[in-house]
């Protein structure tokens, strides 16, 4: 479904990504972790072409992201993305957030979009809030709306960039629950997160990044059992022991 081959990226002369290769099969959940500044966000943003990369190849559902002939808006409309800071559109109601892409990008009728939006809001448990504005919701609620917004486009895969790291601890679980449920339904997911509980529960593989490189790419049991690199062991012991 998602495939990266020897991807490299520079900001000026600073190399953010070096020789990154991995695969995410259909229905697979892959967790990406690593220290701050290791290039996790950059990697995941390259997957839907939000950030350009200079070397290597990325394909999503067989379509090359780096190819200048690729219709990127079309490709992006098929890949849902959830951000650390939610990025709901503050001047629109919850429901308008959910229908904008459906109507403007997919060309659905307003009624169809509203129906779909309502169904998704029920699913994330927020149908009572459909006419509120994002600023009137809690962080956890906003992130659930953001997930519903991404789902409203019927994506073939979902990308998450630290979806819970801007949340107060008591709200983290309400968001993770939605994500776990999604994973169990067979959604293809690439998730940047430090929530190792989530990784243990639903991930098939864990990727560990450091300084722009994929240092570890292993099955979940293997990763939590005996990660091979020292760097990954150190990182794990840090985030698991507090």
């Amino acid at each position: 479904m998602i495939s990266l081959k020897n991807v490299a990226k520079w900001y000026g002369s600073f190399q953010v990504l070096a020789d990154c290769s991995t695969e995410v099969a259909k229905g697979e959940v892959v967790v990406v972790c690593g220290p701050s500044g290791s290039g996790k966000s950059t990697l995941i943003k390259c997957v839907n072409g939000l950030e350009p990369f200079q070397k290597g190849e990325i394909t999503v559902d067989g379509i090359s992201v780096g190819d200048p002939k690729t219709n990127l808006p079309k490709l992006r409309s098929r890949v849902g993305m959830v951000f650390q800071h939610f990025e709901l559109f503050p001047h629109m109601t919850v429901m308008q957030n959910l229908t904008l892409g459906q109507v403007k990008v997919l060309g659905r009728s307003r009624e169809e979009a509203l129906q779909k939006g309502m169904k998704l809001l029920e699913r994330v448990g927020l149908s009572a809030h459909k006419d509120k504005f994002p600023a009137q919701l809690s962080g956890g609620q906003q992130q659930r709306v953001a997930i519903a917004r991404a789902l409203s486009m019927d994506p073939i895969a979902m990308l998450f960039d630290e979806p819970t790291s801007a949340l107060d601890p008591e709200m983290i679980n309400e968001v993770l629950d939605v994500m776990v449920e999604l994973a169990k339904e067979g959604m293809t997911m690439m998730v940047v997160t430090h929530e190792m509980g989530f990784a243990r529960k639903v991930a098939r593989r864990v990727i560990f990044m450091d300084a722009g490189r994929i240092v570890e790419d292993a099955g979940k049991e293997e990763f939590f059992g005996t990660p091979r690199s020292e760097r990954a062991q150190l990182f794990l012991s840090k985030i698991l022991h507090h």
């Binding site: 939000l50 808006p73 990025e87």
Partner: peptide, 13 residues
């Protein structure tokens, strides 16, 4: 916030 433009682009606009 820079993310607003990103979110809009990411949904296929």
């Amino acid at each position: 916030p820079r993310g607003q433009r990103m979110a809009a682009i990411a949904m296929g606009l």
